[in-house]
């Protein structure tokens, strides 16, 4: 275990050397692959290329929210406030990528379904996800970042929210599919050609790296914020307030 932690921290020490170039390469590969390499979809046409950003964004958002869940448990377990910084950072990135998913999805939906938005099961549950973690961020930002009680409250909320995701998805699916309504987002349809799968994989790796970098960057910013608060408190005490 300690060997693993040692290795992890050794890798983490190189984050500013390795991550930015990797993200750059990943993003370049994503653009090139999605716009040039990927074949033109025969039914939907060029607009289908949005998929290579849309789908990785969705999966990455779930990944980031999983990080929130894990670091919330770790915060309650270890009482180390650094986990709270990671949870807040990952929640911010998760909300960002959920918003990307909804935004690119709406723009893709307009030419293919004729509408930007429909109360389809998957769309609805993604929107609720955005509201859930938007509320979490709001609550954490309104409280003092060094307030341990507020951090534990946030962690408990995040645990409940993550456990709620499958239930929300299930209930929304029952709610919608029981209505007589044209299915707009069917099952994934016919199997994708191999080139499309390859481009999708590039997208997943690229966007995943991007999100990792953003979470690391944001965590360090949050930690710096905590440090500022601590310094301010010390200065106040010195001044004899």
């Amino acid at each position: 275990m300690s060997w693993l932690v040692g290795q992890a921290s050794r890798i983490y020490a190189f984050r500013w050397v390795t991550l930015p170039p990797l993200v750059g390469v990943g993003m370049f590969a994503l653009i090139a692959a999605s716009l040039v390499v990927a074949p033109r979809e025969s039914v939907e046409g060029e607009v289908q290329r949005v998929f290579y950003i849309h789908f990785p964004s969705a999966l990455t958002a779930y990944g980031a929210l999983f990080v929130v869940f894990v670091s919330s448990i770790a915060l309650l377990w270890t009482k180390d406030m650094r986990w709270d910084a990671i949870a807040r950072a990952a929640a911010g990135v998760g909300v960002l990528f959920t918003a990307f998913t909804l935004g690119t999805g709406a723009i893709w939906g307009r030419p293919t379904w004729g509408v930007y938005w429909t109360w389809d099961a998957r769309l609805t549950s993604t929107l609720i996800l955005l509201l859930l973690y938007g509320g979490y961020l709001l609550a954490r930002n309104l409280a003092d970042p060094t307030d341990e009680q507020a951090a534990r409250y946030g962690a408990v909320f995040a645990i409940f929210a993550f456990a709620d995701i499958p239930v929300i998805n299930m209930s929304v699916r029952w709610w919608r599919t029981l209505h007589p309504q044209p299915m707009v987002v069917g099952s994934d349809g016919p199997a994708m050609p191999l080139e499309m799968v390859a481009v999708m994989m590039i997208g997943l790796v690229g966007v995943g790296l991007l999100a990792t970098w953003l979470i690391v960057l944001r965590s360090e910013t949050e930690l710096l914020g905590v440090r500022t608060q601590a310094l301010r408190a010390r200065l106040d005490r010195r001044m004899g307030v």
Partner: peptide
């Protein structure tokens, strides 16, 4: 089909601008 490129552009723009 012609207008599709605009939507493709908009979809990418949302991501990169954001």
């Amino acid at each position: 089909m012609e207008g599709q490129l605009e939507y493709l552009f908009a979809g990418f723009a949302v991501f990169w601008a954001g």
